[in-house]
Amino acid sequence: MPSLKQVGALPLRKAPKNTIEVLLVSSRDTGRWVIPKGWPSKRMTDSAAAAREARQEAGVTGKIAKEPYGSYRYRKIEKENVRLIEVTVYLLWVKKEKKQWKEKAQRNRVWFDIETASRKVREPKLRALILALADA
Rank of each mutant, 00 (worst) to 15 (best):
R73F: 09
V22F: 07
R75H: 09
K125M: 06
N81H: 10
Y69R: 15
W111V: 10
K79P: 01
E53F: 09
A128Y: 05
T88G: 00
R43D: 13
S47M: 01
T45A: 07
L24M: 05
A51E: 14
S41Q: 11
L23S: 03
E123F: 00
S3R: 04
G59Y: 04
L131E: 13
M44T: 15
P16E: 14
V110M: 06
I20M: 07
E53M: 11
T45H: 04
W101M: 06
L84N: 12
W93T: 13
I77N: 07
A50I: 14
K14H: 07
V82F: 03
L129N: 01
E80I: 10
Q106N: 05
L131M: 10
V7K: 08
N108G: 04
A105M: 09
Q106D: 07
A15G: 09
E86R: 15
D29R: 12
W111S: 07
L129T: 00
D135K: 10
I64F: 08
P124R: 10
R107I: 09
T19W: 03
E103M: 11
R73N: 13
L23I: 07
W111P: 06
E78V: 15
S47F: 11
E53V: 01
P16C: 04
Q100R: 11
K37L: 03
A50R: 13
R109H: 03
L91D: 01
K104N: 01
T61V: 14
K42E: 13
R127F: 00
E123W: 02
A49H: 08
V7H: 08
N18Y: 03
L126D: 04
A50C: 12
W93I: 05
K98V: 00
T88Q: 11
V60Q: 00
A9N: 10
M44Q: 15
V25H: 07
Y74Q: 12
E123C: 00
K5E: 12
R55G: 04
V60K: 04
A117W: 10
E103N: 06
V87N: 03
V82N: 05
K95G: 13
Y69T: 13
W93F: 12
S118W: 01
Y90A: 05
T116Q: 12
R127S: 14
